[in-house]
Nucleic acid binder design. Structure first.
Lengths: 342, 342
DNA sequence: GAATAATCTTTACGCGCGTAAAATAATAAA
DNA sequence: TTTATTATTTTACGCGCGTAAAGATTATTC
């Protein structure tokens, strides 16, 4: 708790330990003898010193940084999964570096460029999706071990970890059909996210398997303001009677939250009860979906499993060093979360 | 679009520009003659080179990094304001480094430590609040120019930028009293955030000024799961008839969202209409408050102004170099957002 | 076209640390 | 205690870039 130490040389002088040994210690405290380790730690108590991050990393080919890039940190879904991933990384000797792309492909690329300049050991990337600059990302993945999560880009990155949309939409459609009228599917007309496409197809497949005619209701609009789009386009769809039955399955929870709001505006009672006019279901188990009115029936993505597996997959490829012979795709099944909206 | 360049020396060779000039260019492209700049930029098109970040910064006393630390990135309020701040910084030659503390004071300190090791030019910090390690933060602020925002810690940092809670609670109480029964105040019993204390006091003052008796309803609970606390404790308060009138002003929107959900659960109609059983108002204009059912009447914090002023204040102190003679506190007035819940 | 100013090149050193090699010291095994 | 093993110290060099100084080149001005 005293004098400020400038560099490792100086710290070596005051602590009575040679500089190379200190260097070893800071790289891995257990690589030195226990008695030495204790002496160093005692000295660290008394003197305020930490190695210069920039000098430490300048000769390293790789650092101990792991980049995390998500499309939009303002979306609680990504905030949540990023948080879980961060926690997993913090439990290792690596450090997470979290970047959000604000939904903008240019920023996504810029984030990757910036990451490249800090020479990360690896990167976990949830691509924006359709709008992403595939070429650029592909080039990046060739230089830095990268695992994609949430949104897949075929053939890019060392691995992909995400949700099994076929399964989750399947169980939801089954559930809805079993307990009431078959659902229409409410989605963005031109979704940025590839999961949306998979969900649409899964919906169609599931409906046909049950002998029903699929019915898509597509919302116009671009961007990430899903609640707003869900509200405005949902309101219009409700007024124009676009939904073929009393049941709507939304492509994601944020759209569902908007639709819920629109239904309320229209004075429509939403819920599973027989005296309700509408049933609405979502997908993702968005952090807020348990507080909507009524609470939202949805499919929970397995955040924990996706985060854990993504991190594992990344460390696997980092350790293996053998880049990209086999690209593994891991999909986790969702879980039906029955609440009161459907 | 070709050969990979290892270092500036090599890039100097292939581009025909001397290394010191290149160094100048990378520090400020406009510090070299236009013709030279063009030659360099042309070479950059053909060769893949970017200066080694670590080598660049190792001799600098300060880097071009600005740290941003918020209590919790999973809270859309902080996600949003962080996003606006990031945008402001991106418009300068500085780069934002965003860190969330997951609501944990240890992580907050760790984030600051990590920031210190990257030698940021300055830091924008929204402290967790009561739980924050004041001593540690104070010590940090003495080394790195730091501007606090959202939550104030008296005397710490070069400046503080936040909301004028007295004003915003004042106008809300006025509005509620003018249009119906005077409100109870629903809040956390022991809030982490200092704004909560100010809002409580502002509520009491405003009520007394209007000749009403203040009535506090305090929710037990710790942590950041405000919606959940608002729901559970709100449900109990409703059942036990804890609210003295049909009107409730919540300390923040997330609590209000929980209470809204509880009211729905209890079959209570919420809204400004005469045939409704309850009026609920919030504070913050949380991104989701326009999609609740009913939409939430609240006070909008001036995100844009707070973000802008915070960044300005930080650059002021960075430029001035003269650390902390006068600590400036800037408060922005909120704006009443009338929607349908109250 | 010469004089002045601005810019560039050459040369050289330093930053703080990683790390290799050889010598020395501390520990463990015999 | 001696020997074998492991850990530490000494010495020395390199990483990629910032930057200072002095001389050479270019642009600007009259």
């Amino acid at each position: 708790m005293s004098k400020k130490i400038k560099n490792m040389e100086e710290f070596a002088a005051v602590s009575g330990i040679s500089r190379p040994t200190l260097s070893k210690f800071f790289n891995d405290p257990n690589s030195v003898r226990t008695s030495t380790k204790q002496r160093i730690e005692a000295a660290l108590e008394r003197y305020d010193y930490q190695p210069n991050l920039y000098a430490v990393n300048q000769n390293r080919r790789l650092t101990k940084n792991i980049g995390i890039v998500v499309p939009n940190l303002s979306d609680p879904f990504f905030a949540k999964i990023a948080r879980v991933i961060e926690d997993h990384i913090l439990q290792t000797s690596f450090r997470p570096v979290l970047l959000g792309s604000h939904g903008r492909p240019e920023l996504e690329i810029e984030n990757l460029e910036n990451l490249r300049s800090i020479k990360p050991a690896g990167v976990l990337l949830a691509p924006i999706g359709r709008a992403s600059d595939r070429q650029h990302i592909e080039a990046f993945c060739k230089e830095v071990p990268t695992v994609l999560f949430d949104a897949n880009i075929e053939g890019v990155g060392e691995a992909f970890v995400g949700s099994n949309n076929e399964h989750s939409i399947g169980i939801m459609v089954d559930y809805l059909c079993r307990t009431g009228e078959p659902p229409s599917f409410f989605e963005m007309k031109s979704p940025t996210n590839p999961n949306a496409i998979k969900r649409r197809n899964a919906y169609i497949t599931a409906m046909e398997a049950l002998g029903y005619t699929p019915h898509l209701v597509q919302a116009e609009g671009e961007g990430w303001e899903f609640e707003d789009i869900g509200f405005k386009q949902g309101l219009r769809a409700l007024r124009e009677g676009k939904f073929s039955t009393n049941t709507v399955l939304c492509s994601n929870d944020r759209l569902a939250i908007g639709l819920l709001s629109a239904a309320f505006e229209e004075g429509l009672r939403v819920g599973i009860d027989p005296n309700c006019a509408l049933r609405i279901a979502g997908h993702d188990d968005h952090p807020f979906s348990q507080f909507t009115c009524p609470t939202l029936t949805t499919v929970s993505q397995d955040y924990e499993a996706i985060a854990k597996r993504s991190v594992e997959a990344l460390f696997d490829t980092i350790d293996a060093k053998t880049s990209g012979d086999s690209r593994e795709e891991t999909l986790f099944d969702g879980r039906l979360v029955m609440r009161s909206s459907a």
